[in-house]
Write a protein that binds this DNA or RNA. Structure first.
Length: 407
RNA sequence: GGAGAGGUACCGAAGCGGUCAAACGGGGCGGACUGUAAAUCCGCUGGCUCAGCCUUCGGAGGUUCGAAUCCUCCCCUCUCCA
């Protein structure tokens, strides 16, 4: 393949599925250099370990990073262990509480592990931004701050909105984009990836790089995945996410419960790179034909596949058929031991709370009163029921099961 | 530094001396329906040894037979002025 053709092929793959692509022409020039024996592009994707789990929304940008990796460039996965302690104010309506160093460290460890499910971490450059940010002196930091202005900073729509609504903005939140931008300087990034909500931060990166005498990075954004509730963007705190490290059955089940409309959207957003074959089927469903149920199962299977591999995907599909469709207890169901400690029988509510992991006896009581509880297949309606020693199969609602042994 | 407004349950938001475990909406959970879809409908949603009791309305005191509601101090947020 000629150099020019390869250049166009790469640009097309980079462009595919992205929303914004700022600095495309500059990148073209650098890509050309890279392809004629120069340094491969340095492509930065940063994530703050502000929650213990990455979710499917994160995989969109990770897939994009993986594509750069395929094209022979240098993917840099940046763990924002320093920035997590500031807290990215993007899309936030209020200041978020600061995380302790210990929490951040804990989260950071699992991040690397989770990312490795999607990206070949061995072949990537894995960095932590505390590496250079901890070393920054106060003087350095003030110099960094002098490169940008307040007016520019509060142009950001979430800051502007909070300002208008009278919500608090702490000064350190204004600093966040600068610090993220400095990461690009430290890494000499040619490209930075992020969700569409990151556009502002990525653009600040360009300016700050210029101020430090570097060529500005290209800013490429990918769409944000709407959460399982179909309303807001997927996030841990909104409780509408599906975690990369969630159990296979969990990922599968939650994926199956989204609306058809949302399914179509997810398939489109997650398709670039690996799922193109689903697009015709999605189009068919959208037109009112096809088989939405089958398509959703396939999507759910692939989501699990992405996070847990083939075995996990098969197990999750089997679990779904058995527990959800046929209403049978799961194959693998560990037995919970309840010790009587001298009593002759155990209270039902207490047993439920312990075996099903409920928050309180009151919650168990509600389930019983609402007719959601079955004991060995028979409905139970008496919250005061006491269970003599023995083995029981407990079921609450459609999907929660526990095997209990009272002794 | 000065003046004003405000902090209520997972979130948003009413309540402003008893009838408040606290309206309403969202979320969550259970049920009906189904493709475990979604949408819709019905119910539940602080805790406990549960027809009773205990702990909640930024924090600490106080007034009162009785406080989320009144008073004092403190902490936090916003607006305007400087």
């Amino acid at each position: 393949m000629s150099g020019a053709a390869e250049l166009e092929r790469q640009l097309a793959r980079i462009r595919e599925g992205s929303v914004d692509f700022v600095g495309e022409e500059e990148l073209r020039a650098r890509l050309k250099e890279a392809l004629s024996g120069g340094r491969p592009l340095r492509v930065k994707l940063g994530m703050d370990p502000s929650a213990p789990d990455l979710h499917l929304g994160h995989t969109v940008a990770l897939e994009k990073l993986r594509i750069f990796q395929e094209l022979g460039h240098t993917p840099i996965f940046l763990v924002g262990d320093f920035t997590a302690r500031i807290g990215d104010p993007t899309g936030k309506k209020k200041t978020r509480p600061a995380l302790s160093e210990a929490e951040v460290r804990r989260n950071a460890e699992t991040y690397v592990q989770q990312v490795s499910r999607v990206l070949d971490v061995q072949a990537a450059e894995l960095r932590f931004n505390s590496e250079w940010l901890d070393a920054l002196s106060a003087a350095d930091f003030v110099r960094l701050c002098s490169k940008h202005t307040l007016a520019r900073m509060i142009e950001r729509d979430d800051f502007a909105r909070r300002l208008q609504e009278g919500a608090a903005i702490a000064i350190h939140e204004l600093l966040y984009p600068l610090v993220q931008a400095y990461d690009s300087v430290a890494l000499e990034a040619d490209v930075e990836l992020g969700g569409t909500d990151q556009l502002f931060n990525l653009l600040v990166g360009r300016e700050i790089q210029r101020s430090y005498g570097q060529r500005p990075q290209a800013a490429i954004t990918v769409p944000l995945l709407v959460g399982a509730d179909g309303r807001e963007k997927m996030s841990k705190s909104a409780g509408n996410g599906i975690g990369i490290s969630d159990a296979p059955e969990e990922i599968y089940g939650r994926a199956m419960s989204i609306s058809d409309e949302l399914m179509l959207q997810w398939i489109r957003l997650l398709s670039f790179g690996r799922w193109q074959d689903l697009l015709p089927r999605a189009a068919e469903v959208e037109a009112g034909g096809g088989d939405p149920f089958a398509l959703k199962q396939e999507m759910a299977r692939r989501l699990v596949l992405r996070c847990h591999g083939e075995a996990g995907a098969e197990a999750a599909a089997a679990h779904f058929r058995r527990v959800v469709r046929r209403g049978e207890p799961p194959e693998e169901l560990p037995e919970v031991e309840i010790a009587l400690a001298g009593a002759t029988a155990a209270g039902l509510l207490d047993v439920m709370r312990r075996a099903l992991g409920l928050a309180s006896n009151a919650e168990a009581r509600r389930l019983v009163q609402q007719g959601a509880v079955r004991l060995d297949g028979d409905p139970v309606r008496d919250p005061a029921l006491r269970l003599p020693p023995g083995r029981y199969l407990l079921r609450a609602g459609k999907r929660r099961y526990a095997r209990v042994r009272i002794a």
